[in-house]
Nucleic acid binder design. Sequence first.
DNA 1: GCAAGGTC
Length: 970
Amino acid sequence: MRILCVAEKPSIAKSIAGILAGGHPSNRPGKDKFCRNYDFQYRMPGVQGMVDMTVTSVRGHLTNADFGPEYKAWYSCSPADLFTAPIMTNLSDDAKAIGLNLRNEARNADALMIWTDCDREGEHIGSEIVAEVRKVRRNIRVMRARFSAIIDSQIHAACQNTVELDWRAADAVESRIQLDLRIGAAFTRMQTLALQNHIPALNEARQVISYGPCQFPTLGFVVDRYNKVIEFVPELFWLLQLHKTRSMSGGDPAPEDPPDQIRKVVFNWDRGHLFDKLAVEILRDLCRASPLATVDNVNSKQTRKWKPYPLTTVELQKSGSRLLRLTPKRILDIAESLYQKGFLSYPRTETDQYDKEFDFNALIAKQTADGAWGGIAQRLLDGAFERPRNGRNNDKAHPPIHPTSHANNLTGDDKRVYDYVTRRFLGSCWTDAIGTQTTVNVSVAGEKFHASGLVILQRNYLEVFTYDKWEGNLLPPFVRGETFTPTRLEMKQGATTPPKLLTEADLVSLMDKNGIGTDATIAEHIAKVIERQYVMSVKEGKTSYLVPSTLGIGLVEGYNQLNLEKSLCKPVLRRETEFRMSLICAGERTKAETIAESVNEYREVFALTNRQFGRIAETVLSYLTDPNAGQEARAVEIGEHDEDDDVDAINLISDSDSDGDSDDGGGGPARGQGAARGAGRGRGAASRGGSTRGGRGGAAAGRAAPRLDRSGPDNDGGSKDARPGSDGSGSPSCLCGEAAVERTTNKAGANQGRRFYACAKPMGDPSKCDFFEWADTANTRSGFSNGSAPRTVPAKRSVPADTDEWSSNMRSTSSWSGSGSVRRCDCDLQAVRRTSGKSGANQGRSFWTCGRESIKLRCKFFEWDDDESPTTSTRAVNSSSGGGGGGGGGGASGACYRCGQSGHWASDCTNEQRTTANASGRGSAPKRGGAKRRGSGKTRGGGSGGRGGKDDGCFRCGKKGHWSSECPGT
DNA sequence: GCAAGGTC
C-alpha cells in the first residue's frame, strides 16, 4: 500500500516526514524547486505490513480564479457583467510544476492524505490538491490528517486517526474567492473608467482606481480618523492640583538637605477635571480658605508589570512598527526571510499560547551563546524560567513566533527584528517585574487629592525585554493622620486635544479588530492603499502617520454621499461575507445559495453606485482640484503627543491661576501663551475643515466634540460631564454596551422611512459599532441580511479545536447530541437556546449558541436544537430554498431587497412599490433575470437591460446608447 | 490595468 501525503508548505512536509519516519527519510527532488518528496515506510494500525509513504507539499493555493478570455479585456463587457460572467479556475502559473509533481506521485498511490493547515484556507487548499490528484486517479481514497502542532504524538495520532476533508469549509472559501473577484473587478473597472473619463489627469496617468472589499474599509479607517482630527473642536476644562515639597527624610526641606533628597510631590485631584470653570473656581476658593492638608491614607501594595504575551503576527507588526519604526509589510517580509533562514518560527500565526508540550529549554539553550542576552538565557535555564502567559488566541496551526536558532551575524533591520522576537521570547519565559506602589491620599477642605510613588523591587523580564519601560518614582514619607500646608495649590486649565492621525500600528489594530484582511494580508492591504495613492505615509519626528490623499478623501466622501446603509468604505460588508462563510461552514447555507445571495446584493449596490457615480466623480474632482485640499494634512499638527497613545489625550495647556497672589508673575505669561496656542489650533483646524470641505462645515460644527472625563467615580460636582444619551431609556443596547439611537432609513427602497436602532457614536468614529436593529422588530432578531451584527473577528483560521470536537462536527454519521441536553459552547459556558427569527427555511427553529450576553464576545459555537446532523440540515435548507426561489439563480430564502417579502429575488420582484425615490435610475432599472449573459461577448449589445453599462451610460463619455468599447469619443 | 488568500 502506498499513501501520498501532501502538506501546505515544504517546511511542514519536511517536519511531518521526519516525525513519521522516526529519523531522516530519504528525499528526492520534486518537479517544483521547493517541494521535495520524502519517502519512508510506516506502520498503520489495521493495515498489514508496512505502508509506503511519500510526503510532499504544495506552496499555498494551487489555483487562481479569473474570468474567461472574453471578459478579460476591460472594454470587452460592461463591468456589471462581471457579476455573472463565468469564472475559470486554473492552476496558477507558479503551481504548474507542483501540480505535475502531485499527479506523478499520485499515479501509483492508493490513498491521498491531506496535511494542510487546519483552517478554512487549509481545507480549500486540500480540495485543490484532491482535484489535481483526481485528474489522474479519479477514485483515489482521500483522508484528512488533522493536527494542531508539529509534535510527534500529535502527528502520529493525526496519521492514524484521519477524518474527512471539510468540504463545507472549502466551499466557504470558494464563495469568498468568487465574491472578491467579482466585486473587485466590477467596481474597479467601473470606477476607474468613470473617473478617468471625468478627470483628465487620472486618464493621462492611466491610474487604476481599484476597489476591494478590504482595500476600501482600510482607506475608510484612515479617512475617518483624518476627519476626526480636522473636525475636532477642543473643549476647555479645569482642574485643581496640589504641590508639596518635602525632604526624603520627612518634614520640610532643611538647608543641609542635599538637592537629590528633596522631592516635589504633585497631588492630582480625585475629580480629574471638570468642564465647569465656575465650579472649579468655587472649589479652589474653598481650599484656599482652609488650606491645611490632611493625609487620609497611605497605602503600599505590591504591583507588577506584566511580561509580554507570546507573539502573534499582528502583534509583531503592531509593536514592531511602533518600536522598530518599520512598516508592517517590511516587518513581515523580514520575519519571512528569517524564517526561511531557520532563525525564526513560522511568522504567520494568530496563536499567543504555547502548546503544553512546547520544548522551551531547548530553544532557550540555543540563546545562551549570545553576547547580549546569553547570561539571561542561562539564568532561565538555571531556574528562573516561568512558563509564558497564555493569550486568548489559538489558530491551532502554528505556535507563537519565537526564535528557532541563535543568529549572531545578522545586521540592520534583520537584526532588529530578530532581536525583538528573541528578547520578547526570553522575556515571556521570565517573571513579571515586581514593585511596590505607594498611594498617598490627602484632603483639603473636603477636596480629595492623591499622589503615587513606585519602587521597583525586581526588574526580571524587563532586563531582557528592553522595549518595555517602567520607571520608579520615590515618594518622601507621609504618615496617615498628619497635616501639612501645601507648597502650592493651583487651578489649571486644559483642553481636550484632537486624536492623532493613524499610525500604521493603529491601522493594523483597527483592521484586526474589524476583520479586514488576515494576519498575513493586513500589511499588504495597507501597502496597497499607499500604492494606489489613496493614502500617504507622512513622517513626523520618529513616527509615521497615515494621511489620506485628496483622491482617497474624495472617494470616501463620494461614496458616503450615496448614503448606502452598508457603506462600501466600512467593514460591515466584509463582515457579512465572513458571516456567510461561517454559515456555509455550519451547514446552514450552501455555497451556491451564498454566492447567489451575495452577488445579488452587491449587484444592487453596484447598480445604485453606478447610476450615481457622477456625484462621486464630482466629489473626487473637487478634492483633486481644490488648491487648499491636501494642505490640511500638513496643517494638522501631528506627532505632538508622541508619548501618549490615547486617542482622547488631554492637553494640559496652562496654569490659569495659582495658589496665591505672589505666584501671579510666573503663572501669567505661561497661561497667555498656552491658551493662545490651544485656542488657535482649535479654531484653525475647524476653519480649515470648513473652508475646504464646503457644505460639510455645518455638519462638522454641529458635531459634539469628544469630551474627556477622567474624574473619579466619586465625581459629584460636574454634572456637565455626564455623557448624553447613555441612560438608554427604552432603547436597546448597542454592541458597545451603550444606548442605541433611533434613526430613519434614507436609502430609497422598501425600507425607506423605516426606523431602526444603531450605535449612537458619530459617523467616522472608529469605535462606532455596527449594531443594527429594526425598531419595529426590535424583539425579533432578524438575520444578518437585515444587519444584525455578525462576529467581529473573522474566522480566517477557525475550525474546531480538538479531535473529538472535530470529529463530531465533521463526520456525517455524527455523535450529534439529541435535543434537550445541556450543551456547552466553545468558551465552556452553558450554551443558550435561541430561536431563528429570520424568514426562510429555518424560521422558528431553535439553536444553541454561546452563553455570553454580549454578541460581540460570543464564540462561534452553533448547534441546531434537534436531532438533525449538519448534513441533514444542509439538505433541508437546500430543498426548501430551492423550491421557493425563482429561476436559475438559486433559491430566495432571504427577503427580497426591493419589497422586503420573502420567496423571490429582487430581480423577480413584481411589487411596483419598490421604487419610491431616485426616479432617475431605479424606476427604469431593468430586471436582472431577463437578460442573463449567455454565449460570447459579441452578443452583449442585444441585451437591453440588467447589466447597467449601456443603458446607464458609456463608461468613457457618460452618454447613453452605446458601450464604452464603441464610444465614438475614443 | 481589477480582489483576497495562501506561500516562497
